[in-house]
Design a protein around this nucleic acid. Structure first.
Lengths: 247, 247
DNA sequence: AGTGTAAATATACGCTGTTTATTTGAAAAC
DNA sequence: GTTTTCAAATAAACAGCGTATATTTACACT
């Protein structure tokens, strides 16, 4: 037989392929992803996959895009959990907490996005930039809101090399040229949560530093203390479990 | 012919294998490392490699150990460049600068150590822990020296889950139980430099944040401001390009 | 000189991604 | 209601991979 009756075949074969790929990645990591194994699992032959993805890298890219969507939803939901204008600090913390929670919930998806666990795969940045920007846009938007409210500490922040018309992130419309510091702050915060989270979920934190949660909470506190100024209308920075020496 | 004359063969075949492996990794990344390609390059057959490494993972482990040695040397040299007891802050900065410099000089080695770019490879922690600890020991020792000098800001640092006899890092002998905060601070600082450096060398910093050097210098300054207290004998914290608001 | 061993080769197995040619169900056209 | 057309599947094959097995052979020791 060459082609089964359409009534008998799975109508959403493209989705089935991705589902099987995710199952493999969840079980044994992205490095062991195999087109033939996928085909075996869903009962087709390996070349049939090429009707839905031009090659293995295209499948991986599709998986990454889906993972970014899931991650981005998580981020934006966390941001939306504190919608009041005065709650920018809480929004920042919430997105930070959500960042680690998503990474721990889907460690392989996290590594698929932010690591490079697939053998010869090189991410097509042109294709991935939009979803990447949407995901990181939650964090950037929060920081931009802090900046607009005059609560972002921007002294000493290096200027990003960006021309005015060239904006990737979702950023409220302002003419303030100092706004570009927002990008740098976003990168700095992102690199900090990424550093701790990636070391934790890859098991690279030494045995005695098992309590990733405590380290992460401390790090979020430190980030807030570094970049958030107290609001001028009496609302204080969010409560912190530690204090800081005056410097 | 089955076995060439010893006079004709390369006497250091094990080293030749590793050299060829490094060449491949440097040229096309660790994911495309191939035993058969190595054998082809140095003019032997693929199974001959099994006389020197039980399998491909053992070769990768040997490469990682060598990379750790190079990285550790770099770290300890940077630390030794400010040998005076009062120069602990400079030592911290120097190790931080050296961290990024080594990573940029050998990006594939960095990813081989701190990423997971080889298909099915799972690092044998028991074997790698010593070299890993020696490398990170430079940073930890500097922080411990700061702590002993009373210049480490440890308020609010979460306690690591470690029993007293169980020490991995090279740490000066003190009975101070608060010393364990040193471990947490080391992990926090490590995760921050790792986060920024890994994003930079994998090209994941968005296009406008190309100036990784500026971001990194800012981050090092922030780290010093957060964890180093001014010395009590008049020596101030190292000069910084930015100031901080009182909080 | 003879023997044992270690290091290399030759061969083969099963796996991978991918390409080609071929078949065939289903829909469209007449 | 045929016939044509097309898309989706299969079958077969290729090159490359890590690795296991059996075999050859140069060297060292007795």
């Amino acid at each position: 037989m060459a082609r089964p009756f359409r009534a008998l075949q799975m109508p959403h074969l493209r989705e089935s392929i991705k589902d099987s790929a995710w199952r493999q990645i969840t079980e044994s990591g992205a490095s062991s992803l195999s087109l033939r194994k996928i085909a075996r699992e869903i009962g087709i032959t390996a070349p049939a996959i090429y009707n839905y993805f031009p090659d293995r890298d295209a499948l991986v890219t599709a998986l990454i895009i889906d993972a970014y969507a899931s991650f981005g939803d998580f981020q934006h939901e966390a941001k939306a959990s504190f919608p009041e204008p005065g709650q920018a600090a809480e929004r920042l913390r919430a997105t930070g907490i959500a960042y680690r929670r998503w990474a721990i919930k889907y460690p392989h998806r996290y590594m698929l996005i932010f690591g490079s666990p697939v053998p010869g795969y090189v991410p097509p940045m042109q294709e991935l930039l939009p979803v990447m920007m949407r995901s990181l846009g939650a964090l950037t938007a929060v920081i931009a809101e802090l900046h607009i409210a005059g609560r972002l500490e921007v002294r000493g922040i290096p200027h990003p090399l960006i021309e005015p018309g060239h904006r990737f992130f979702s950023l409220p419309d302002t003419a303030d040229p100092g706004t570009f510091a927002v990008y740098s702050v976003a990168m700095l915060i992102w690199s900090r949560v990424h550093g701790l989270v990636s070391l934790e979920i890859t098991g690279q934190l030494p045995p005695f530093a098992e309590d990733g949660e405590a380290l992460y909470r401390y790090e979020l506190d430190a980030i807030c203390l570094q970049f958030i100024r107290p609001s001028q209308d009496g609302e204080d920075v969010i409560s912190s479990t530690r204090s800081r020496s005056s410097q």
